[in-house]
Amino acid sequence: MRMLTGFLTLLFCMVFGLAGPASAADAYPSKPIKLVVPYGAGNATDAAARLLAKFLEQELKTGVAVVNVVGAAGTIGSTQVLKAKPDGYTLLWNHLSLLTAYHTGASRFTWDSLTPICNGVRFYKALVVRGDAPWNNLKEFIAEAQKKPDAINWGVNIGAGLHFEALGFETMTDTKFHYVAGEGEADQINALLGGRIDVCTPSPQIVNQYKEDGRIRALATSTEKRLPSLPDVPTYQEEGIDLTFVYEPSLYGPPGLPAAIVATLNAAMAKIMKNPEFIEGLAKLAMDPAYMDQETFKKHLLKLDADLYMFARQGGLIPRQKI
C-alpha cells in the first residue's frame, strides 16, 4: 500500500513536473493579449476596444482581454503599458488624452515614450446640456457664457481630451467656464442630470438615448460634417467656431516593441478595418474606422502634438516641470 502510494506520487510528480508553464518561444501571439483601456467600462473608447477585441481575437487566433485601468486622465493605464514587457502581450488603447495629459502635466511622458503601432477608429463628441436648460441653441449658450464668466459648470476629466475640448472652446469663443472634476461619460451624465454640472461633452450616441425623455439636449457636435445620427444638431464649424475635435483611439505598445510584432499587429488591424461587420459595429457606436499604418501614424501624432501644445499655451496652461 505504501509502495503503491509512493509510486503513484512519483508518477504524478513526473507528469506535472513536465507540464510546465506555457513556453514563450512559440510564434507571436501564443498567449492571450491584454488590452489596457485607461478609462472606465462603458464609455465610447471602451466600447470600441471591446468591439476591436472581438475581431482581433478572430484575426490573431488568441484571446484578447480588455482591462480597464481608470484614473488621472488615462495616465495610470498608460503608465502600466509603459512599464510592461515589450513582448506584445500588453497593449494600450488610448487617444489624444495621452498627449493632452502630458501637456497639462498629469503625465510625465507622451506618445514618443511608447511604441505607436497604428491608428484605430475615430469618433467625435457632442456638446450637451440638460433638457430644461435656458439655452435653446449654441449662440444663446455662448452669449450667456460671455456675460457670466466662470459661472457655468463644465464637467471634464482633468488633463484628458474632454478638458482640452473645453479649453479649445473657450479659446475660440472667448468665454470662461468653471471646471468640475469627473471621470468618463457615465459619470458626466450622472452629474449633468443631477444638476452638479451644466454642460459636458459625451459621445453623440448618448443624446439619442435621451431623445425620448428629453432630459438631455445636444447643442452642437465637434465633427466636420453633421452626424447622420443627429441631423438637427449643427457642428461647431457651422456656428462659426473653428473647432473640430476628433478622438482617435489607437493602439500603442511598450517602448522597444520588436518590429515583427508591430508588423503582425498592423496587418491584423488593417484587415479588421476593412471588415464590413466591424464597420457596421462601429457605426452603431457612431464611429468610423481610421486606420493609419505606423509611419503615417507617427507623422500624424507629431502634428497633433504640436497643435495641442499650442492649445495648451493659448489656454493658459503651463505644463508642470518635467521630472
Binding site: 513536473g17 513536465l18 508553464p21
Partner: peptide, 10 residues
C-alpha cells in the same frame, strides 16, 4: 525558480 507550480504545490 522555474520549478513547476503543480509539483511545488503538491
Amino acid at each position: 525558480t522555474d520549478i513547476s507550480y503543480l509539483l511545488l504545490t503538491f
